[in-house]
């Protein structure tokens, strides 16, 4: 059952990143993906009876993702300061 939930979270997060036009929403999508992965590692630890290791890994992931989310929010805020909007469609000056 939990595998379905992890899959669902992954799909929701990926969909959110692909479809959205708001920078904040893209970051929220990434947070959903990271939650799915945290859950996966905890579930794996529970299945193999290594909950202690799994918890250590999950805590590290959570700490790191806070830093990434804060950085991303800071960058989004600066983009807002420069353009007055959070729309990703403005980010088309550079073509990949």
């Amino acid at each position: 059952m939990i595998a379905f939930l992890i899959l669902l979270l992954l799909i929701c997060g990926a969909y959110c990143i692909v479809v959205t036009r708001s920078m904040i929403r893209a970051i929220i999508g990434i947070e959903l993906l990271i939650k799915a992965v945290t859950l996966l590692i905890i579930a794996a630890g529970n299945m193999t009876g290594r909950t202690a290791t799994a918890q250590s890994l999950a805590i590290t992931i959570i700490i790191i993702e806070v830093v990434v989310a804060a950085t991303a929010a800071g960058i989004a805020l600066w983009v807002f300061k420069r353009t007055g909007t959070l729309d990703v469609r403005n980010l088309r000056n550079l073509k990949g």
């Binding site: 920078m23 989004a76 983009v79 353009t83 980010l91 000056n93 550079l94």
Partner: peptide, 10 residues
Amino acid sequence: SLESLEGSFK
């Protein structure tokens, strides 16, 4: 600058 923020966000 807007350009660098874009590159960074991408």
